[in-house]
Design a protein around this nucleic acid. Structure first.
Lengths: 131, 131
DNA sequence: GTTCGTGCAAACGGTTTGCAACAAT
DNA sequence: ATTGTTGCAAACCGTTTGCACGAAC
């Protein structure tokens, strides 16, 4: 418990009971919870916890680098007319998604992943468009 | 125009005026439009087109394989307590997201991408969890 | 007493759904 | 007549915001 408080301090986050409770769950889980899942679970221990606080807390954590939002599932649906496999580059300034040709990047090792039967994959790159 | 109709038929989609108009735009663009962007643009040529029809049409297209929803940006935000770089595997049956160790998959060529300054990347894999 | 965090409820934006009108077979 | 498609509006769900209360320094 103290390690949690210390970690919050370490990241410049004032440790409040609610934040500690959220961190205690979210930093120890192996799943990738949604905000509402976090709320449902942490509320059991901290019944006064409101949804807004969970959202605020998670956003704060992400901002401070305690958490990440993986580049999957994060906004609205976009549609891709190119059905053939290719990779994606996301411009971090504008959010624009660019197609990267399949041959431009090569991936190895995906066939031998233990426990996973990979049907398709792609590389998602993030950075800046070079002018 | 006829090639569009033919393509719709080919994918088992009944070609209606609205669907043709949507397909005509969405299959020819290089961008990754959101449903609302599609609506805004196609409505200029087909002013009666409703939002609902655009959503229905795009979902139908995706279902039939005419379009893809890239594994980026597609639902609610999920939070990842593992800040260190790693890859993600998405179980297509359950939607569960698993972490894949960074070393399990190797990527080459991402440094020499012309026009892109890559800051981070990850491989997103999809398939079935092997029991 | 000012600052910061919380809780509530309302607002918001993207997406879906229910339903009545309509077209095509 | 049945089936499938459209348009509208309302519902929906996840998320954000405004605001008043409360705690801490």
């Amino acid at each position: 418990m103290n390690d949690i408080i210390e970690k919050l301090n370490q990241y410049g986050i004032q440790p409040t009971p609610q934040r500690i409770a959220v961190a205690d769950f979210v930093l120890k889980t192996d799943t990738h919870p949604t905000a509402d899942e976090v709320w449902a679970i942490v509320r059991q221990r901290c019944p006064t916890l409101s949804r807004a606080t969970v959202y605020n807390t998670l956003n704060l954590f992400a901002e401070k680098g305690l958490l990440k939002l993986p580049p999957i599932k994060e906004g609205v649906a976009v549609f891709d007319p190119h059905v053939a496999p290719h990779h994606h580059f996301i411009d971090e300034e504008t959010g624009t998604v660019y197609d990267v040709p399949w041959e431009a990047v090569s991936v190895a090792g995906e066939k031998t992943l233990d426990g996973y039967e990979v049907r398709e994959y792609q590389v998602v790159l993030r950075g800046r468009r070079r002018k």
